[in-house]
Design a binder for these strands. Structure first.
Lengths: 79, 79
DNA sequence: TTTATTCACCACATGTATGTGTTAATTGAT
DNA sequence: ATCAATTAACACATACATGTGGTGAATAAA
């Protein structure tokens, strides 16, 4: 049986999602455009940006390459 | 239907896993000890370190806190 | 040799992330 | 107000990650 996400987990996911959205908007890409570049579904991208789910590191890598940013920049938020 | 992992994906996961193992050993923690601190199963930790699977960012956060390292340091390897 | 530690590896059940398809809702421009 | 672009939000099937429990291999110590 899996661990359940705590409030801290969701707080982390919320901040991460907000940061990803920030970087996507700085690149002037819509979710639909990022879908094409990253090969991820735009639905999934939306869920990640809203902090609803905990995506995998392989997907983080895909998004970083699509946005042409360093994967570490996704974690550039306070705390 | 999900995307399948490419060779680049697995290469990324392999490097990431190696880096995580490196940081764990620097902290002098066994997989069993990290299991306790991170609340993740040691089986899963082993699979991640071997690069077999793509774990979630929430788990990365758990491991970073348990190892008392910055989550960004997980990605400090030559790409 | 024996014992203990650490890790690799396996099978299985289950929860979750993902993609697809669809329909609202929102935003912006005119 | 209308129109277009963008995003939110839903349901569903399925692939994958995760935990549990177990066995075995490798290493070191004694």
């Amino acid at each position: 049986m899996r661990r359940k996400y705590t409030k801290e987990d969701y707080e982390f996911l919320r901040k991460l999602g907000h940061r990803i959205r920030e970087l996507r908007e700085q690149t002037d890409l819509s979710q639909a455009a990022l879908e094409i570049d990253s090969k991820m579904s735009k639905n999934q991208i939306g869920r990640i940006e809203r902090g609803e789910i905990s995506t995998s590191v392989a997907n983080l890598n895909l998004m970083a390459k699509a946005l042409q940013v360093d994967i570490q920049s996704f974690f550039d938020f306070e705390e």
